[in-house]
Design a protein around this nucleic acid. Structure first.
Lengths: 182, 182, 182, 182
DNA sequence: CATGAATGAGCCTTCATTCAT
DNA sequence: AATGAATGAAGGCTCATTCAT
């Protein structure tokens, strides 16, 4: 059944997420992924042409595209958009595994065309779409503001400060963005 | 001469910067670094105990610690501090080599204690020092602002937008930071 | 089949015996062993975690534990025990390959715990067991005699004299041992 | 001065004895020997053409040739010869360093012509000379006895039994040899 | 004599990938 | 689908040896 197929495939991807986050994409041996997934090494190559295909699959999931898309699907406007994105972003990358994968995925951007393309989409198309929703227009100014927004989020994730809690940070960040948007 | 020692060492590091930026730290074979430096493979291990020591050396240089330190040394205050840092930051990472190395170095943070320590220093001690200089005090609020500042810079570097030039971006960024600092 | 596994494993061990006996354990390159066994270099490490595991496996087989055990299994008493051991010992180490391996294995005793343990077993437990069988009791005196017995065998193997044949030597040796045992 | 030459040379040999005894001849890196001797790596190769020359030098000293020669020089006869040899032998190889070196040297016999030659000398010429002194004649029988004598010594050294002290062992051994010599 | 930087060959080991079963 | 034995390329690293100083 194709259901089984997908289940196994997902189990492998899930194992890969774990192993990649611990070792980095290129230092992670496939056999560890297989063991973690409870399947044989050979089977990994039945589902993925080569290791790179698996890397790309995991790397794409590691970027915050899903976070943004899910918030765009809900029909939010104004602050609510950034609140949704900010909350989901911090939720996702609070998990050390996703945090690690995010950093590794970004580093891949320099070398893997497909990741570069996703990052481009993130930084161009998605920012444009978010700008429309949050500020009603996508202008140079609003796009700058959104880059600052995302930069702030990433910087927070990279090393969460001990004396600032997520909520405070996010509220401040959004305030700043909107104060300047007007 | 001890001068020779340092010269050779630096030549190797320089070659490593080039090769690491192209391949990533772990996919870069040492023999390519040696060839690039014009020395034998064995010599690399005369100067560095193992590949990891070389990686760490390069990774540390790839973080913006030097940028911040050099601006802190000049006795600047207020906007001038951020202007100095912003300019030097964008100058350094405009070079695709340093950009790539920065991303790889940040990804290392998850796995190498020494890099994690440097990132911590960057995000805690240095931000505090910069806050003192730029805003006259290091408070929760000013540190949040600086994180946003650095996040904005990093996000710009990650994928420089075609329709926004560095100067405009930097001016806007600093404006926003200072408008909120008061 | 699990039979195949064992067959391949034994082929590798057998090849290792040959190569080790020619080069010594540490000067023998693994690729020669692989070639001799008709398998790829990688496969050696599929069956043995590292070279040391293979060395230990071969070294243990090189000691005369098997010789003694096989004679203890047969229900011999008195002279017959020593005749059995002496004959099998000289048979085994007449082969230059086993002779060489024996010397290398003994040298390993200083450095490899597992080999040291086997040598200890040989010199303590086994000598005791042989003493019981050959002399009816394991006393300080009989154990000294057996050490002399084994020393004589080893010394003969180390450099077989041209003017003394095995049989004569062995008969003399056993005579001396038993003359003193009474 | 040639005096200095010899002093340095001996310091290197002495260091080599230590390092070889710990690592074995081929696993011992020359740089450790140099460090132990307090000289530069290059200097080792000024005194010895290559590592093998140093190995052979040390290996030769590790065999009991010196023990036998020194006892032959004194004008001893009968039991006294074996007592002298036995005592000096056990004295030398009680030191774990010499014990280890002896075993490694013997293992070399299979591979290095020069060592093989020394072992041959030991087992043929020297045994003959000792036989003349100890028993007044070198016959097949006396040579067998001496081989047993040396075998016994070596076996004792290989793993000294806890319940038998050197003196007792040696006295027993010599008694046995002489009881059979008559 | 003495140093230590420099070389390069070679070794052990890992690991992505294939394939017979 | 699934396994795991088998392969072979490649990499990190060691180390004997040389040589300019």
């Amino acid at each position: 059944m194709s259901g089984d197929r997908d289940v196994t495939r997902e189990r492998i991807i899930s194992a890969a997420e774990k192993v990649f986050s611990e070792y980095g994409f290129f230092r992670a041996p496939v056999h560890l992924i297989a063991r973690e997934a409870g399947v044989s090494k050979g089977l990994v190559f039945w589902y993925f042409r080569d290791k790179m295909e698996l890397i790309v699959e995991v790397a794409k999931r590691s970027l915050p595209l899903d976070v943004i898309d899910s918030c765009l699907e809900e029909n939010l406007r104004g602050r609510d958009v950034l609140e949704c994105i900010g909350k989901n972003y911090l939720d996702k990358y609070r998990d050390p595994r996703w945090k690690s994968l995010l950093l590794h995925a970004i580093a891949l951007e320099t070398q893997v065309r497909e990741i570069a393309e996703d990052v481009r989409k993130l930084c161009e198309e998605k920012i444009e779409a978010v700008a429309e929703r949050a500020f009603g227009e996508s202008s140079t100014k609003t796009r700058i503001l959104l880059r600052i927004f995302f930069g702030g989020l990433m910087c927070f994730v990279l090393r969460p400060p001990k004396d600032i809690d997520e909520q405070t940070f996010l509220k401040n960040l959004i305030n700043i963005i909107f104060k300047n948007a007007l």
